[in-house]
Structures are given as structure tokens and as C-alpha cells.
Design a protein around this nucleic acid. Sequence first.
DNA 1: GCGACAG
DNA 2: ATCTTGTCGC
Length: 229
Amino acid sequence: MKNALHEWNLAPQEAIALQKELAQRLEPADRIDPVTHIAGMDIGFEDGGDTTRAAIVLLKWDPATAPDLAVVEQIVHREPTRMPYIPGLLSFREIPAALGAFEKLSVMPELIMVDGQGIAHPRRLGIAAHLGLWLDLPTIGIAKSRLYGKHEDVGEARGDWTPLRAKNATIGAVLRSRAKVKPVFVSPGHRISLETSLEWVVRCLGRTKLPEPTRLADRLASRRDQRKK
DNA sequence: GCGACAG
DNA sequence: ATCTTGTCGC
């Protein structure tokens, strides 16, 4: 039986070994149920970092009104922070709190957009990939900056993108989600291809840099506009 | 050995 | 990520 105490409280070397093992279980091909709900997930911190705040925004998918999607549910879940930020091991710091938030969600989505990398990671297991494997749900990683991989300059027009590559493999895409704004890094997590990931991200793109699911989750996880009760 | 380094 | 006000630009 999987127990968070044993699966998440690992020493860096053990976590790295686990990532290599789990990455082999990722499904790179699309295996997605008909999408009716999409969730955006992000993490924030309080108390100078002592408290981790996981936020989820559940949206009803409606191609007729997209990218304007109705908010069905919002969850904010707090837990004591368990470990520091270590590049490459982000999921071990943030996923435990995220799981607590998903447990409070009344309806599970068919697709999740996560703030962070999918397989665009040195061991192919960014937070979006790790979360997807754990929940066994399709996930897409949308990061605001690069962690791993190389790429050419991306076009200036909204929608332009260029491959993010590492070791002769394409691990994601650098997408100009909004003209004149720094591009976002899109990479598939679990049960979804890069092509399909880009389609969904673009479909959920308003006139902002981030697609609606992560933009709203970002805002909910952030300290400034939501206030602790 | 020297940088780079999601959030 | 977070600490923080005003300010430049579309």
C-alpha cells in the first residue's frame, strides 16, 4: 500500500532513484476520457514558507464558450511545508499538499493543467508528470520558465512555438501564448502527447499569458488576492 | 571543475 | 515561491 510517509519523505538520492523508476511508467500517448472538466493546480506558501497552500480550480469544459469556462469548484488546502525547494525535486515538496486538495474535490477532472514541468525534466518526471502518474489522470505541465532542455528562439506571434529538446528527443514546446510576452514552457505529463497538450493549452488561452486553468489556480494560490481566514 | 537550476 | 509601490506601456 502506498503511504505518503514513505513515498514522499525521501532523501534526495532516494527521490532521484524513484524518479528514474517512475518515469518509465509514463504513458506518452493520448489516453483521455471525453473532457467535461479541466482542473488547474498551483502551489503557494505562507508563514515565510512554513505553510504550503495547494489551490485547485475546477472548470467546466465548453467548446462553445472557450476560453471562457465556468468555475465549478475551488479548493484551497493547507499543510505544513515538508521540505525545501531543490531544483529537480519540486514534486516531492509540492505534491503532498496537492493530493490533500484533490481529496477535497467533489468531481475529478479528465484533464489537469499544472504549474510546472511535465517531462521537460532531467529525469523526465516534472511535477505534472509525477502528479499524473499518482492520480492516473492526463496532465500537462505549463511552466513560466525553463528547467531543462534547449530551444531556438520562438516566433513573436501568439500561438508560435518551437520544440524544447534534450538528448535528441523533443520533451516539450516553448509557446508564445501572448504576443510580446515571455513564452511559456509546455510539456506533456502523463497519458497525453505533446501535440494534444498544445491543442488544449491553446484552446484554454484567453488574452493572457497563462491558460485559464493555471491562471486561475495561480491567482487562488497566490497570497495577494485571496486572504487567509 | 564550472555553471544551471520549475516553484 | 516570497518580500514589496509605483510606474511604464499597450
